[in-house]
Simulated scan of single mutants.
Amino acid sequence: VRYFAHLDNPEKIQYRKEDIKAHCGAEIEHHLSISSNEKAIMKREIQSLIREKDFIEYADLLDYLLDAQLYELLDVANSHTLLFGKYIASRKYKRQGA
Rank of each mutant, 00 (worst) to 15 (best):
H31R: 09
E18N: 10
F4L: 11
V1P: 08
V76T: 09
I28M: 09
I41M: 07
P10L: 10
I34N: 05
R44Q: 10
L65Y: 09
L7F: 11
A22W: 00
L82K: 08
Q69E: 13
D63Y: 03
D8G: 15
A40W: 05
L62D: 01
D19F: 04
E72H: 05
S79L: 09
T81L: 03
R16I: 02
D75H: 01
I41V: 13
S48I: 01
H30T: 12
Q14W: 08
L32Q: 07
E52V: 09
A26D: 01
N78Y: 00
N78R: 01
Y3R: 15
A77W: 02
S35N: 09
N37W: 02
E27R: 07
V1H: 05
A40E: 07
I46T: 06
D75G: 01
I20E: 08
A89C: 05
S79A: 12
Y3A: 13
L70S: 10
I41Y: 07
F84L: 07
A26W: 00
S36T: 12
L32A: 04
E52K: 15
E38H: 06
D63V: 06
L32I: 04
K12G: 01
H31Q: 11
G85T: 02
I28Y: 07
D75W: 08
E57I: 06
F84K: 11
N37T: 11
I41R: 12
L62I: 14
A77L: 03
A89K: 06
R91N: 02
I28V: 15
K21M: 00
Q14R: 15
I88H: 03
L83M: 12
E72A: 10
G97N: 15
D75I: 02
A59G: 00
D19G: 00
K17G: 09
D60Y: 07
K12T: 03
S36E: 09
K39D: 08
F84M: 10
T81E: 14
L74S: 00
L73D: 06
A59S: 11
Q14F: 12
L74V: 02
A89H: 02
L73H: 15
N9I: 04
A89T: 02
K12S: 15
Y15N: 03
H80N: 14
L49W: 11
T81D: 08
S36W: 04
L62W: 00
A26Q: 04
E27Q: 06
H6C: 13
I88Q: 05
F55A: 10
D8M: 05
E38Q: 13
